[in-house]
Design a protein around this nucleic acid. Structure first.
Length: 406
RNA sequence: GUGAGCGUAGCUCAAUUGGUUAGAGCACUAGACUGUGGAUCUAGGGGCUGGGGGUUCGAGUCCCCUCGCUCACCCCA
């Protein structure tokens, strides 16, 4: 039997309709805030991610799909969207403009063990804004996030924290490292925490919960600039009713984050549906000018599991009919009517086997099409068509033009 | 990478302490029904019981290995 690779799934109709609607809604919101779409390759040089995400990050270390190309280039399927966008930002000299706003939407790849809400190929929608140091861009991005979830009618809880900058973060990390070393026994877990002490806050080990609560807080280590940035952000956020949950244990997985980081949860789900933050020196790190940036990514699979209905978008047909035929040589007449209706944004499905009327109606029933048109010899002669409501069983003969007008 | 649970028809599940030719419902196809679907009835197609090995007179059932799925850890959207 043929089958798909582990952790990579097919998305079939009608689920794909939800995807289409969601992606249109997301891109519309991004456009409202002045973001333009960027499409970067799925493959990048592996080093882009190895350098940007941090060497001790599992994503860079062991979760990337990497291969050596025929000319010995080491390529990788992108595991996230920010690094490629930053790369394109530099490569195309987009920094000639003082503010650049980009959004993206597409598949990402991480070779993890699949489980609930976790796939090897998954999809992210994200935005990135470059060039603005002021916390107002942080505020605007959080407003954008909130707007998305309010349009979806989905209650989002946003956690926020500041990780400080290259100035104050190392001081905090040292303090935290020393604190952990005294509290946690020597084993491989301690090694992990020594490499990146912030990982302590991600730990689900119940023995660490007390350690976590007693650990030093980043807030008291922030330098004046970072503190001011954070406080201005929080002040605006509260005045704009952003309703943020301050979370000093929020760390995030990638090394490039500075200052503001945030994560969002829907309902009591423990998996984050959205994550993002500021990366003030990623562009410089990649060899570009020292231009700040901030962005987030939404996990679309995770988001979709929290949604029931997504509002219809205007690119869909206003209505869809099943067009059945009966009698001799009615196929051509049916095609003609079908094309007329389609030209008027009305969807038409026909039983292309063109068997007995009985079988055609059975197919319409199977496909759950509520409105059926029947084209028979009588109707054809009179330029009419029979409309039948499959739910009520009511039917009537009407002029063909009447179908176009609903 | 570590750990746990589960694999019988497309789907949901049966099959006596191991015992003949592995069944049912749903779904599918055809007919009853050549201008009317759903309901009913009849008939039909579908299975290397995930795969391999072992124990046994005999394995869907017991043992080992392997593959797959699911969940949790690690990590993350």
């Amino acid at each position: 039997m043929v089958r798909n690779p582990k952790g990579m799934r097919d998305i079939l109709p009608p689920e794909t309709l939800k995807w289409r609607r969601l992606e249109i809604l997301l891109s519309k919101v991004a456009l409202l805030y002045g973001y333009g779409e960027i499409r970067t390759p799925i493959l990048e040089f592996s080093d882009l991610f190895r350098k940007g995400l941090g060497d001790q990050s599992d994503v860079a270390l062991k979760e990337m799909y990497e291969f050596v190309d025929k000319n010995d280039d080491v390529l990788a399927l992108r595991p996230e969207g920010t690094a490629p966008v930053a790369r394109a930002f530099i490569q195309h000299h987009l920094y000639d403009s003082p503010m650049v706003k980009l959004f993206y939407d597409g598949p990402m790849f991480r070779r993890e063990r699949p489980q609930a809400g976790r796939y090897r190929q998954f999809h992210q929608f994200g935005v990135e804004c470059f060039g603005i140091e002021e916390p107002f861009v942080d505020v605007e991005i959080l407003l954008l996030v909130k707007r998305i979830f309010s349009l979806l009618g989905s209650p989002l809880t946003l956690h926020i924290n500041s990780l400080g900058c290259n100035e104050c973060r190392p001081r905090y990390m040292d303090a935290l490292r020393r604190f952990i070393a005294d509290r946690i026994p020597e084993d491989e877990e301690l090694d992990r925490f020594m490499k990146n002490p912030l990982k302590l806050f991600d730990s689900k080990n119940p023995e660490h919960s007390i350690v976590k609560s007693e650990a030093p807080k980043i807030t008291s280590f922030l330098c004046d600039d970072c503190k001011e940035h954070y406080e201005t952000l929080m002040d605006f956020a509260s005045k704009l009713n952003l309703d943020l949950v301050e979370d000093n244990e929020l760390a995030r997985g990638f090394d490039y984050y500075t200052r503001t980081v945030f994560e969002g949860y829907v309902g009591d789900d423990s998996l984050a549906v959205i994550g993002g933050g500021r990366y003030d020196h990623l562009v410089a790190y990649y060899g570009g000018p020292d231009i700040p940036g901030i962005g987030f990514a939404i996990g679309l699979e995770r988001l979709l599991t929290t949604l029931d209905e997504i509002p219809k978008v205007d690119s869909e047909p206003t209505k869809t009919y099943f067009l059945a035929t009966t009698g001799n040589d009615m196929v051509m007449a049916a095609f003609t009517l079908a094309e007329l209706l389609r030209s008027n944004n009305i969807g038409v499905i026909m039983d292309l086997r063109q068997g007995k009327l009985q079988k055609q109606l059975k197919l319409a029933d199977k496909m759950e099409i509520e409105n059926v048109l029947i084209m028979g010899e009588e109707e054809y002669k009179n330029n009419t068509v029979t409309v039948r409501n499959m739910k009520t069983g009511e039917q009537m003969v009407i002029p063909q033009e009447a179908v176009i007008n609903g």
